[in-house]
């Protein structure tokens, strides 16, 4: 079995031992694992070929996505599929697809003119986010028209969501296959230990939301952030391949899932039996 991981190396200030450990386990299990770091090498685009049974797209950088796109066109099996990873990088599409799938998400708006968002403030604060952002970068809570007037965006437009004040700890839900895990942590986490947070038993409602999120995109490897406000849960962000920090035995569970996916590829079994066709085009 040949598997390639498309990754970005994190700086030492952001330790991320889970993926290296999963790679080590897969290698021990006899899998031929290659690691591709698109940012650290020069790639002759004419020589990019599908050479692995399975690609694991861990990196969400623009270059990694482009490489995954090339492999996708070449017929590669990618975990998660390139079109889904691309959609989940786009908060506008993600928000709409989740809403359409019946997932509770904050009302979301997009406009090139910040002034058009001012009436929304009558009902409470909003939060603006870069539409392809991650790790909380560039996220601002807007409470007044003045703050909105001072808001600029490199995107040329603003993506805004209704803001719900988090009550209690930050909650992350991670899904590996049909397994759903909850991790709660302080926000913002300052240390690696704080990032690991603490696993918690999630409610049946959150479990159902987690299943709906996966079905909406036809994938089994994802994570999302939940904010609970006045007894309601809202999915405020979803990512294709999160860090799974805090999931008990995360590396082992990921390796188990990826190994199983590789087996399915080798046996000719579809990897994404529930994938919505319209999500792939």
């Amino acid at each position: 079995m040949k598997i390639a991981f498309i990754i970005t190396h994190h700086p030492p200030t952001r330790p991320s031992p889970i993926i290296p450990e999963a790679i080590r386990l897969l290698s021990e299990w006899g899998v031929n694992v290659d690691v591709i770091c698109p940012e650290e090498q020069m790639t002759d685009l004419s020589k990019v070929r599908v050479e692995h049974d399975l690609y694991v797209l861990k990196s969400g950088t623009e270059l990694a996505l482009s490489m995954a796109g090339i492999l996708h066109v070449g017929g590669a099996t990618i975990l998660n599929p390139y079109p889904v990873a691309e959609m989940l990088r786009d908060k506008i599409m993600t928000s709409h697809i989740l809403q359409a799938a019946g997932v509770p998400t904050p009302d979301a708006f997009v406009t090139a003119d910040p002034k058009q968002l001012i009436p929304l403030l009558d009902d409470g604060p909003i939060v603006v986010k870069p539409y392809r952002g991650s790790q909380g970068r560039g996220v601002r809570v807007i409470r007044t028209a003045n703050e909105l007037n001072e808001t600029t965006s490199e995107d040329g437009f603003l993506f805004a969501q209704r803001y719900y004040e988090p009550q209690g700890l930050d909650k992350k839900i991670y899904v590996i296959g049909d397994q759903v895990y909850g991790v709660k942590r302080v926000w913002p986490p300052r240390t690696y230990e704080e990032k690991l947070g603490e696993p918690f038993t999630i409610s049946p409602d959150l479990h159902e939301i987690a299943i709906k999120c996966g079905r909406a995109f036809g994938i089994g490897l994802y994570g999302f952030d939940v904010i609970e406000n006045n007894g309601r849960s809202y999915v405020v962000d979803m990512s294709s391949f999160p860090g799974f920090k805090g999931v008990p035995n995360a590396a082992l569970r990921l390796a188990d899932y990826i190994y199983s996916a590789g087996e399915r590829v080798l046996s000719g079994t579809p990897l994404f039996p529930t994938l919505r066709k319209d999500a792939l085009v």
């Binding site: 049909d178 895990y181 909850g182 696993p199 038993t201 999630i202 049946p204 959150l206 479990h207």
Partner: peptide
């Protein structure tokens, strides 16, 4: 007490379940 079909036991020692 914590088992539902499709549920996962997070810890054998503390019997914490993924969801309930």
């Amino acid at each position: 007490a914590g088992w539902r079909s499709g549920n996962q036991l997070l810890s054998l020692n503390s019997m914490v379940w993924a969801w309930s």
